[in-house]
Design a protein around this nucleic acid. Structure first.
Lengths: 243, 243
DNA sequence: TAGTGGTCTAGACCACCCT
DNA sequence: GGGTGGTCTAGACCACTAA
Protein backbone atom coordinates (compact mmCIF):
# COMPACT_ATOMS: atom_id res chain seq x y z
CA UNK A 1 0.00 0.00 0.00
CA UNK A 2 1.19 3.48 -0.87
CA UNK A 3 2.68 5.39 2.03
CA UNK A 4 0.23 8.28 1.79
CA UNK A 5 -2.66 5.86 2.17
CA UNK A 6 -1.05 4.31 5.22
CA UNK A 7 -0.61 7.72 6.77
CA UNK A 8 -4.24 8.61 5.94
CA UNK A 9 -5.52 5.42 7.52
CA UNK A 10 -3.44 5.96 10.65
CA UNK A 11 -4.72 9.51 11.08
CA UNK A 12 -8.25 8.37 10.41
CA UNK A 13 -7.84 5.75 13.09
CA UNK A 14 -6.71 8.42 15.54
CA UNK A 15 -9.74 10.55 14.75
CA UNK A 16 -12.15 7.67 15.16
CA UNK A 17 -10.57 6.57 18.42
CA UNK A 18 -10.59 10.10 19.78
CA UNK A 19 -6.84 10.64 19.95
CA UNK A 20 -7.46 13.67 17.78
CA UNK A 21 -10.60 15.24 19.18
CA UNK A 22 -13.43 16.85 17.32
CA UNK A 23 -12.79 20.53 16.52
CA UNK A 24 -9.16 20.09 17.55
CA UNK A 25 -6.16 21.18 15.56
CA UNK A 26 -4.01 18.23 14.60
CA UNK A 27 -0.21 18.47 14.46
CA UNK A 28 1.22 20.46 11.58
CA UNK A 29 2.32 18.72 8.41
CA UNK A 30 6.00 19.10 9.22
CA UNK A 31 5.61 17.29 12.56
CA UNK A 32 3.49 14.57 11.03
CA UNK A 33 6.05 14.09 8.27
CA UNK A 34 8.78 13.69 10.87
CA UNK A 35 6.68 11.30 12.96
CA UNK A 36 5.82 9.06 10.02
CA UNK A 37 9.32 9.29 8.58
CA UNK A 38 8.13 10.73 5.33
CA UNK A 39 8.01 14.00 3.41
CA UNK A 40 5.55 16.82 3.85
CA UNK A 41 4.14 16.33 0.36
CA UNK A 42 3.14 12.80 1.32
CA UNK A 43 1.47 13.98 4.49
CA UNK A 44 -0.37 16.62 2.48
CA UNK A 45 -1.62 13.95 0.10
CA UNK A 46 -2.88 11.90 3.04
CA UNK A 47 -4.70 14.89 4.51
CA UNK A 48 -6.28 15.59 1.13
CA UNK A 49 -7.82 12.13 1.20
CA UNK A 50 -9.24 12.72 4.65
CA UNK A 51 -10.51 16.10 3.55
CA UNK A 52 -12.40 14.58 0.63
CA UNK A 53 -13.72 11.93 2.98
CA UNK A 54 -15.12 14.75 5.10
CA UNK A 55 -13.09 14.06 8.21
CA UNK A 56 -10.91 17.16 8.37
CA UNK A 57 -10.70 20.64 6.97
CA UNK A 58 -7.73 22.91 6.55
CA UNK A 59 -7.30 26.64 6.85
CA UNK A 60 -4.30 27.94 5.03
CA UNK A 61 -1.96 29.66 7.38
CA UNK A 62 -3.70 28.26 10.43
CA UNK A 63 -3.75 24.47 10.48
CA UNK A 64 -5.70 21.27 9.94
CA UNK A 65 -8.72 20.56 12.11
CA UNK A 66 -11.00 17.64 12.83
CA UNK A 67 -14.56 18.26 11.64
CA UNK A 68 -17.30 18.38 14.21
CA UNK A 69 -19.21 15.58 12.53
CA UNK A 70 -16.12 13.59 11.62
CA UNK A 71 -16.85 10.61 13.82
CA UNK A 72 -20.40 10.32 12.53
CA UNK A 73 -19.21 10.35 8.97
CA UNK A 74 -16.46 7.87 9.66
CA UNK A 75 -18.87 5.48 11.31
CA UNK A 76 -21.78 5.53 8.98
CA UNK A 77 -19.55 5.71 5.93
CA UNK A 78 -22.47 5.76 3.55
CA UNK A 79 -21.29 5.39 0.03
CA UNK A 80 -22.68 8.10 -2.16
CA UNK A 81 -25.84 7.10 -3.96
CA UNK A 82 -26.14 3.79 -2.24
CA UNK A 83 -29.47 2.54 -1.03
CA UNK A 84 -29.46 2.36 2.71
CA UNK A 85 -33.13 1.97 3.34
CA UNK A 86 -32.98 -1.75 3.57
CA UNK A 87 -30.03 -2.28 5.81
CA UNK A 88 -31.26 0.53 8.02
CA UNK A 89 -34.75 -0.92 8.29
CA UNK A 90 -33.57 -4.42 9.00
CA UNK A 91 -31.71 -4.91 12.22
CA UNK A 92 -31.56 -8.67 12.22
CA UNK A 93 -31.06 -11.38 9.69
CA UNK A 94 -33.40 -11.16 6.77
CA UNK A 95 -34.17 -13.29 3.82
CA UNK A 96 -33.43 -11.66 0.48
CA UNK A 97 -34.82 -13.32 -2.60
CA UNK A 98 -34.91 -12.52 -6.29
CA UNK A 99 -37.59 -13.66 -8.69
CA UNK A 100 -36.95 -13.43 -12.42
CA UNK A 101 -40.20 -12.25 -13.99
CA UNK A 102 -39.00 -11.81 -17.52
CA UNK A 103 -35.83 -12.55 -19.45
CA UNK A 104 -35.75 -11.68 -23.14
CA UNK A 105 -33.55 -10.62 -26.00
CA UNK A 106 -34.63 -7.93 -28.45
CA UNK A 107 -33.58 -4.76 -30.25
CA UNK A 108 -33.51 -1.58 -28.16
CA UNK A 109 -36.03 1.22 -28.42
CA UNK A 110 -35.06 4.83 -28.95
CA UNK A 111 -34.69 5.72 -25.28
CA UNK A 112 -32.46 2.72 -24.68
CA UNK A 113 -30.28 3.51 -27.70
CA UNK A 114 -29.91 6.98 -26.31
CA UNK A 115 -29.02 5.94 -22.78
CA UNK A 116 -26.65 3.15 -23.82
CA UNK A 117 -25.07 4.91 -26.81
CA UNK A 118 -25.84 2.03 -29.16
CA UNK A 119 -27.61 1.64 -32.50
CA UNK A 120 -31.01 0.07 -33.07
CA UNK A 121 -29.32 -2.99 -34.54
CA UNK A 122 -27.37 -3.94 -31.41
CA UNK A 123 -29.46 -6.44 -29.45
CA UNK A 124 -29.97 -6.13 -25.71
CA UNK A 125 -31.06 -8.26 -22.80
CA UNK A 126 -34.37 -7.19 -21.31
CA UNK A 127 -34.58 -8.35 -17.70
CA UNK A 128 -37.36 -7.86 -15.18
CA UNK A 129 -36.77 -8.98 -11.63
CA UNK A 130 -38.64 -8.74 -8.37
CA UNK A 131 -36.75 -8.25 -5.12
CA UNK A 132 -38.24 -9.77 -2.04
CA UNK A 133 -37.32 -9.20 1.59
CA UNK A 134 -38.73 -11.57 4.17
CA UNK A 135 -41.59 -12.56 1.88
CA UNK A 136 -42.39 -8.89 1.20
CA UNK A 137 -41.70 -7.59 -2.32
CA UNK A 138 -39.97 -4.24 -2.16
CA UNK A 139 -38.64 -3.42 -5.62
CA UNK A 140 -39.12 -4.15 -9.25
CA UNK A 141 -36.07 -3.88 -11.47
CA UNK A 142 -36.10 -3.43 -15.21
CA UNK A 143 -32.59 -3.85 -16.62
CA UNK A 144 -31.32 -3.36 -20.18
CA UNK A 145 -27.83 -4.59 -21.10
CA UNK A 146 -26.22 -4.76 -24.55
CA UNK A 147 -25.53 -8.40 -25.34
CA UNK A 148 -22.16 -7.55 -26.77
CA UNK A 149 -20.95 -6.23 -23.42
CA UNK A 150 -22.17 -9.08 -21.22
CA UNK A 151 -22.56 -12.29 -23.19
CA UNK A 152 -23.97 -15.54 -21.95
CA UNK A 153 -26.30 -14.32 -19.27
CA UNK A 154 -28.60 -17.12 -18.17
CA UNK A 155 -31.69 -17.32 -16.01
CA UNK A 156 -29.61 -19.23 -13.54
CA UNK A 157 -27.20 -16.30 -13.23
CA UNK A 158 -30.06 -13.89 -12.69
CA UNK A 159 -31.36 -16.02 -9.87
CA UNK A 160 -28.02 -15.75 -8.15
CA UNK A 161 -26.48 -12.33 -8.68
CA UNK A 162 -26.03 -10.50 -11.95
CA UNK A 163 -23.41 -8.19 -10.49
CA UNK A 164 -21.39 -11.09 -9.14
CA UNK A 165 -21.36 -12.57 -12.63
CA UNK A 166 -20.34 -9.32 -14.30
CA UNK A 167 -17.66 -8.43 -11.79
CA UNK A 168 -16.49 -11.85 -10.74
CA UNK A 169 -16.82 -14.13 -13.75
CA UNK A 170 -16.45 -11.60 -16.56
CA UNK A 171 -13.98 -9.45 -14.66
CA UNK A 172 -15.83 -6.26 -15.54
CA UNK A 173 -14.83 -3.18 -13.59
CA UNK A 174 -17.57 -0.66 -12.95
CA UNK A 175 -16.92 3.04 -13.33
CA UNK A 176 -19.19 6.02 -12.76
CA UNK A 177 -22.94 5.92 -12.76
CA UNK A 178 -25.65 8.51 -13.27
CA UNK A 179 -28.95 8.29 -11.44
CA UNK A 180 -32.22 10.16 -11.54
CA UNK A 181 -34.81 9.85 -8.79
CA UNK A 182 -38.52 10.63 -9.10
CA UNK A 183 -41.77 9.97 -7.33
CA UNK A 184 -44.32 8.39 -9.66
CA UNK A 185 -47.77 6.86 -9.56
CA UNK A 186 -47.86 3.07 -9.51
CA UNK A 187 -48.31 1.33 -12.85
CA UNK A 188 -49.96 -2.03 -13.45
CA UNK A 189 -46.83 -4.00 -12.65
CA UNK A 190 -46.31 -2.10 -9.41
CA UNK A 191 -49.84 -2.95 -8.39
CA UNK A 192 -49.44 -6.57 -9.38
CA UNK A 193 -45.99 -7.33 -8.00
CA UNK A 194 -45.34 -4.69 -5.35
CA UNK A 195 -48.93 -4.80 -4.14
CA UNK A 196 -49.28 -1.05 -4.51
CA UNK A 197 -52.69 0.53 -4.17
CA UNK A 198 -53.63 3.50 -6.30
CA UNK A 199 -52.59 5.80 -3.49
CA UNK A 200 -49.21 4.21 -2.81
CA UNK A 201 -46.45 6.31 -4.34
CA UNK A 202 -43.45 4.68 -6.00
CA UNK A 203 -39.83 5.76 -5.78
CA UNK A 204 -38.44 5.46 -9.28
CA UNK A 205 -34.68 5.36 -9.81
CA UNK A 206 -33.24 5.44 -13.32
CA UNK A 207 -29.60 4.52 -13.55
CA UNK A 208 -26.96 4.27 -16.25
CA UNK A 209 -23.87 2.36 -15.17
CA UNK A 210 -20.67 3.09 -17.05
CA UNK A 211 -17.53 1.02 -17.43
CA UNK A 212 -14.17 2.36 -16.43
CA UNK A 213 -13.63 3.62 -19.96
CA UNK A 214 -16.95 5.43 -20.14
CA UNK A 215 -18.92 2.86 -22.13
CA UNK A 216 -22.51 2.54 -20.90
CA UNK A 217 -22.98 -0.99 -19.63
CA UNK A 218 -26.45 -1.03 -18.16
CA UNK A 219 -29.59 1.05 -18.17
CA UNK A 220 -32.06 0.27 -15.45
CA UNK A 221 -35.29 1.63 -14.09
CA UNK A 222 -36.15 0.45 -10.61
CA UNK A 223 -39.43 0.93 -8.81
CA UNK A 224 -39.25 0.83 -5.04
CA UNK A 225 -42.08 0.51 -2.56
CA UNK A 226 -42.31 3.88 -0.82
CA UNK A 227 -42.44 2.37 2.65
CA UNK A 228 -39.42 0.12 2.33
CA UNK A 229 -36.70 2.01 0.49
CA UNK A 230 -35.14 5.42 0.77
CA UNK A 231 -31.95 6.77 -0.76
CA UNK A 232 -29.27 8.67 1.10
CA UNK A 233 -26.24 10.41 -0.21
CA UNK A 234 -23.58 12.76 1.00
CA UNK A 235 -22.31 15.62 -1.07
CA UNK A 236 -18.76 16.50 -0.19
CA UNK A 237 -18.00 20.09 -1.00
CA UNK A 238 -15.02 20.45 -3.23
CA UNK A 239 -13.64 23.88 -3.69
CA UNK A 240 -10.30 23.02 -5.19
CA UNK A 241 -11.74 21.50 -8.31
CA UNK A 242 -11.24 23.32 -11.56
CA UNK A 243 -12.48 26.84 -12.12
CA UNK B 1 -4.69 30.45 -10.34
CA UNK B 2 -2.51 27.48 -9.52
CA UNK B 3 -0.61 26.06 -12.44
CA UNK B 4 -2.10 22.58 -12.14
CA UNK B 5 -5.58 24.05 -12.46
CA UNK B 6 -4.57 25.99 -15.53
CA UNK B 7 -3.21 22.85 -17.10
CA UNK B 8 -6.38 20.95 -16.17
CA UNK B 9 -8.58 23.61 -17.72
CA UNK B 10 -6.54 23.69 -20.90
CA UNK B 11 -6.71 19.92 -21.30
CA UNK B 12 -10.41 19.98 -20.53
CA UNK B 13 -10.87 22.60 -23.22
CA UNK B 14 -9.07 20.37 -25.69
CA UNK B 15 -11.32 17.44 -24.84
CA UNK B 16 -14.48 19.48 -25.18
CA UNK B 17 -13.37 20.99 -28.47
CA UNK B 18 -12.40 17.61 -29.83
CA UNK B 19 -8.67 18.18 -30.11
CA UNK B 20 -8.31 15.10 -27.94
CA UNK B 21 -10.91 12.69 -29.27
CA UNK B 22 -13.08 10.32 -27.32
CA UNK B 23 -11.36 7.01 -26.54
CA UNK B 24 -8.04 8.48 -27.66
CA UNK B 25 -4.81 8.33 -25.76
CA UNK B 26 -3.60 11.78 -24.86
CA UNK B 27 0.11 12.67 -24.82
CA UNK B 28 2.14 11.20 -22.00
CA UNK B 29 2.79 13.19 -18.85
CA UNK B 30 6.38 13.91 -19.75
CA UNK B 31 5.40 15.48 -23.08
CA UNK B 32 2.61 17.50 -21.49
CA UNK B 33 5.00 18.71 -18.81
CA UNK B 34 7.40 19.89 -21.46
CA UNK B 35 4.66 21.54 -23.50
CA UNK B 36 3.26 23.45 -20.52
CA UNK B 37 6.69 24.27 -19.19
CA UNK B 38 6.06 22.55 -15.90
CA UNK B 39 6.95 19.40 -13.99
CA UNK B 40 5.43 15.97 -14.38
CA UNK B 41 4.01 16.06 -10.85
CA UNK B 42 2.00 19.13 -11.76
CA UNK B 43 0.66 17.48 -14.90
CA UNK B 44 -0.26 14.43 -12.86
CA UNK B 45 -2.17 16.62 -10.43
CA UNK B 46 -4.07 18.21 -13.32
CA UNK B 47 -4.96 14.81 -14.75
CA UNK B 48 -6.16 13.69 -11.33
CA UNK B 49 -8.64 16.54 -11.35
CA UNK B 50 -9.94 15.55 -14.76
CA UNK B 51 -10.13 11.97 -13.63
CA UNK B 52 -12.29 12.88 -10.65
CA UNK B 53 -14.41 15.01 -12.96
CA UNK B 54 -14.99 11.90 -15.03
CA UNK B 55 -13.32 13.15 -18.20
CA UNK B 56 -10.35 10.82 -18.44
CA UNK B 57 -9.07 7.55 -17.05
CA UNK B 58 -5.56 6.26 -16.71
CA UNK B 59 -4.05 2.81 -17.03
CA UNK B 60 -0.75 2.46 -15.30
CA UNK B 61 1.92 1.48 -17.74
CA UNK B 62 -0.23 2.33 -20.72
CA UNK B 63 -1.40 5.91 -20.77
CA UNK B 64 -4.19 8.39 -20.15
CA UNK B 65 -7.35 8.17 -22.26
CA UNK B 66 -10.41 10.31 -22.91
CA UNK B 67 -13.57 8.67 -21.64
CA UNK B 68 -16.24 7.75 -24.12
CA UNK B 69 -18.84 9.86 -22.40
CA UNK B 70 -16.44 12.69 -21.57
CA UNK B 71 -18.05 15.31 -23.73
CA UNK B 72 -21.50 14.57 -22.35
CA UNK B 73 -20.27 14.93 -18.82
CA UNK B 74 -18.37 18.07 -19.61
CA UNK B 75 -21.40 19.64 -21.21
CA UNK B 76 -24.10 18.77 -18.78
CA UNK B 77 -21.83 19.33 -15.79
CA UNK B 78 -24.54 18.46 -13.35
CA UNK B 79 -23.42 19.22 -9.87
CA UNK B 80 -23.90 16.21 -7.68
CA UNK B 81 -27.14 16.27 -5.76
CA UNK B 82 -28.47 19.32 -7.46
CA UNK B 83 -32.05 19.51 -8.59
CA UNK B 84 -32.16 19.65 -12.34
CA UNK B 85 -35.81 19.01 -12.90
CA UNK B 86 -36.74 22.64 -13.11
CA UNK B 87 -34.12 23.99 -15.42
CA UNK B 88 -34.56 20.94 -17.61
CA UNK B 89 -38.31 21.32 -17.77
CA UNK B 90 -38.22 25.01 -18.53
CA UNK B 91 -36.70 25.98 -21.82
CA UNK B 92 -37.58 29.62 -21.81
CA UNK B 93 -37.79 32.37 -19.26
CA UNK B 94 -39.87 31.51 -16.28
CA UNK B 95 -41.08 33.34 -13.28
CA UNK B 96 -39.84 32.00 -9.96
CA UNK B 97 -41.58 33.20 -6.84
CA UNK B 98 -41.36 32.43 -3.15
CA UNK B 99 -44.19 32.78 -0.70
CA UNK B 100 -43.45 32.76 3.03
CA UNK B 101 -46.18 30.71 4.67
CA UNK B 102 -44.83 30.65 8.16
CA UNK B 103 -41.95 32.26 10.03
CA UNK B 104 -41.55 31.49 13.70
CA UNK B 105 -39.07 31.11 16.53
CA UNK B 106 -39.29 28.22 18.97
CA UNK B 107 -37.36 25.49 20.77
CA UNK B 108 -36.44 22.45 18.68
CA UNK B 109 -38.07 19.05 18.98
CA UNK B 110 -36.12 15.85 19.50
CA UNK B 111 -35.60 15.07 15.81
CA UNK B 112 -34.33 18.59 15.18
CA UNK B 113 -31.93 18.45 18.13
CA UNK B 114 -30.62 15.22 16.75
CA UNK B 115 -30.14 16.43 13.20
CA UNK B 116 -28.63 19.78 14.18
CA UNK B 117 -26.54 18.56 17.13
CA UNK B 118 -28.06 21.12 19.50
CA UNK B 119 -29.81 21.01 22.87
CA UNK B 120 -33.48 21.60 23.51
CA UNK B 121 -32.67 25.01 24.95
CA UNK B 122 -31.14 26.43 21.78
CA UNK B 123 -33.88 28.25 19.87
CA UNK B 124 -34.38 27.79 16.15
CA UNK B 125 -36.09 29.50 13.28
CA UNK B 126 -39.00 27.56 11.83
CA UNK B 127 -39.61 28.57 8.24
CA UNK B 128 -42.19 27.31 5.78
CA UNK B 129 -42.03 28.53 2.22
CA UNK B 130 -43.82 27.76 -0.99
CA UNK B 131 -41.94 27.82 -4.29
CA UNK B 132 -43.88 28.85 -7.34
CA UNK B 133 -42.91 28.55 -10.98
CA UNK B 134 -44.99 30.39 -13.51
CA UNK B 135 -47.97 30.56 -11.16
CA UNK B 136 -47.67 26.81 -10.47
CA UNK B 137 -46.58 25.78 -6.98
CA UNK B 138 -43.97 23.04 -7.17
CA UNK B 139 -42.38 22.63 -3.76
CA UNK B 140 -42.97 23.22 -0.11
CA UNK B 141 -39.91 23.82 2.04
CA UNK B 142 -39.74 23.41 5.79
CA UNK B 143 -36.47 24.80 7.11
CA UNK B 144 -35.02 24.72 10.64
CA UNK B 145 -31.99 26.87 11.50
CA UNK B 146 -30.43 27.52 14.91
CA UNK B 147 -30.78 31.21 15.67
CA UNK B 148 -27.26 31.36 17.04
CA UNK B 149 -25.79 30.40 13.67
CA UNK B 150 -27.82 32.76 11.50
CA UNK B 151 -29.06 35.75 13.48
CA UNK B 152 -31.38 38.47 12.29
CA UNK B 153 -33.32 36.63 9.64
CA UNK B 154 -36.33 38.67 8.59
CA UNK B 155 -39.39 37.97 6.49
CA UNK B 156 -38.01 40.38 3.99
CA UNK B 157 -34.85 38.25 3.63
CA UNK B 158 -36.94 35.13 3.14
CA UNK B 159 -38.83 36.81 0.34
CA UNK B 160 -35.59 37.48 -1.43
CA UNK B 161 -33.17 34.62 -0.93
CA UNK B 162 -32.13 32.99 2.31
CA UNK B 163 -29.00 31.53 0.80
CA UNK B 164 -27.92 34.88 -0.59
CA UNK B 165 -28.24 36.31 2.90
CA UNK B 166 -26.31 33.49 4.55
CA UNK B 167 -23.54 33.40 1.99
CA UNK B 168 -23.41 36.99 0.90
CA UNK B 169 -24.32 39.09 3.93
CA UNK B 170 -23.18 36.80 6.74
CA UNK B 171 -20.25 35.41 4.78
CA UNK B 172 -21.10 31.83 5.69
CA UNK B 173 -19.30 29.15 3.71
CA UNK B 174 -21.24 25.96 3.12
CA UNK B 175 -19.56 22.60 3.48
CA UNK B 176 -20.90 19.09 2.95
CA UNK B 177 -24.54 18.12 3.02
CA UNK B 178 -26.38 14.88 3.59
CA UNK B 179 -29.65 14.14 1.84
CA UNK B 180 -32.26 11.44 1.99
CA UNK B 181 -34.88 10.99 -0.69
CA UNK B 182 -38.20 9.19 -0.31
CA UNK B 183 -41.56 8.91 -2.02
CA UNK B 184 -44.39 9.73 0.38
CA UNK B 185 -48.13 10.22 0.36
CA UNK B 186 -49.30 13.84 0.31
CA UNK B 187 -50.17 15.39 3.65
CA UNK B 188 -52.67 18.16 4.29
CA UNK B 189 -50.24 20.91 3.44
CA UNK B 190 -49.28 19.24 0.18
CA UNK B 191 -52.92 19.04 -0.75
CA UNK B 192 -53.53 22.65 0.24
CA UNK B 193 -50.47 24.34 -1.22
CA UNK B 194 -49.17 21.98 -3.90
CA UNK B 195 -52.68 21.07 -5.03
CA UNK B 196 -51.92 17.37 -4.66
CA UNK B 197 -54.76 14.90 -4.93
CA UNK B 198 -54.78 11.78 -2.78
CA UNK B 199 -53.20 9.86 -5.62
CA UNK B 200 -50.42 12.33 -6.37
CA UNK B 201 -47.14 11.10 -4.90
CA UNK B 202 -44.69 13.51 -3.28
CA UNK B 203 -40.92 13.49 -3.60
CA UNK B 204 -39.60 14.19 -0.12
CA UNK B 205 -36.01 15.34 0.33
CA UNK B 206 -34.53 15.68 3.82
CA UNK B 207 -31.30 17.59 3.98
CA UNK B 208 -28.77 18.59 6.61
CA UNK B 209 -26.39 21.28 5.48
CA UNK B 210 -23.06 21.50 7.29
CA UNK B 211 -20.64 24.38 7.59
CA UNK B 212 -17.05 24.05 6.51
CA UNK B 213 -16.11 23.03 10.03
CA UNK B 214 -18.75 20.33 10.26
CA UNK B 215 -21.32 22.25 12.30
CA UNK B 216 -24.88 21.51 11.17
CA UNK B 217 -26.37 24.77 9.91
CA UNK B 218 -29.74 23.83 8.51
CA UNK B 219 -32.17 20.95 8.59
CA UNK B 220 -34.81 20.98 5.91
CA UNK B 221 -37.56 18.77 4.63
CA UNK B 222 -38.80 19.65 1.17
CA UNK B 223 -41.85 18.25 -0.56
CA UNK B 224 -41.77 18.38 -4.35
CA UNK B 225 -44.64 17.90 -6.75
CA UNK B 226 -43.93 14.60 -8.49
CA UNK B 227 -44.56 16.00 -11.96
CA UNK B 228 -42.30 19.01 -11.68
CA UNK B 229 -39.11 17.96 -9.91
CA UNK B 230 -36.65 15.12 -10.25
CA UNK B 231 -33.18 14.75 -8.77
CA UNK B 232 -30.12 13.67 -10.69
CA UNK B 233 -26.69 12.86 -9.46
CA UNK B 234 -23.50 11.35 -10.73
CA UNK B 235 -21.42 8.97 -8.70
CA UNK B 236 -17.80 9.14 -9.66
CA UNK B 237 -16.04 5.92 -8.88
CA UNK B 238 -13.03 6.46 -6.72
CA UNK B 239 -10.71 3.60 -6.30
CA UNK B 240 -7.73 5.42 -4.91
CA UNK B 241 -9.47 6.50 -1.74
CA UNK B 242 -8.43 4.90 1.51
CA UNK B 243 -8.67 1.19 2.10
C1' DT C 1 12.37 -4.53 -23.00
C1' DA C 2 10.74 0.08 -23.76
C1' DG C 3 7.13 3.14 -22.61
C1' DT C 4 4.23 5.08 -19.28
C1' DG C 5 1.94 6.09 -14.96
C1' DG C 6 2.36 6.03 -9.54
C1' DT C 7 4.88 7.42 -5.76
C1' DC C 8 8.30 9.67 -3.04
C1' DT C 9 11.90 13.04 -1.54
C1' DA C 10 14.29 17.47 -0.23
C1' DG C 11 14.19 21.88 -0.76
C1' DA C 12 12.18 26.09 -2.14
C1' DC C 13 8.94 29.97 -2.40
C1' DC C 14 4.54 31.99 -1.78
C1' DA C 15 -0.06 33.01 0.52
C1' DC C 16 -2.45 33.28 4.38
C1' DC C 17 -3.64 33.41 9.54
C1' DC C 18 -2.81 35.14 13.92
C1' DT C 19 -0.80 37.84 17.47
C1' DG D 1 6.81 38.43 11.94
C1' DG D 2 6.45 33.53 13.09
C1' DG D 3 3.70 29.55 12.06
C1' DT D 4 1.32 26.91 8.80
C1' DG D 5 -0.65 25.25 4.51
C1' DG D 6 -0.44 25.40 -0.91
C1' DT D 7 2.27 24.79 -4.74
C1' DC D 8 6.14 23.64 -7.55
C1' DT D 9 10.54 21.44 -9.17
C1' DA D 10 14.07 17.93 -10.58
C1' DG D 11 15.26 13.68 -10.05
C1' DA D 12 14.66 9.06 -8.65
C1' DC D 13 12.72 4.43 -8.28
C1' DC D 14 8.99 1.20 -8.73
C1' DA D 15 4.82 -1.10 -11.00
C1' DC D 16 2.47 -2.07 -14.75
C1' DT D 17 1.35 -2.56 -19.90
C1' DA D 18 2.27 -3.90 -24.34
C1' DA D 19 4.90 -5.70 -27.90
Amino acid sequence: MAKYKEVANEIRKRIKSGIYHSEEKIPDQESLAKEFGTSRVTVKKALDLLSVAGLVYTIQGSGTYVKKNAVNLAEQSIKIGQNVGLTAAAGERLELKTEVLDFNVRFPDEEECNQLSITKEEPVYDIKRLRILDEKPYSLEHTIIPIALAPNITKEILNRSLYDYLQGDLGIVFGDNRQTVRAVKPDDNDKKYLHCSNEDPVLEVSKVMFLERGTPLEYSVVHHRYDMVEMSFINVSREGLLG
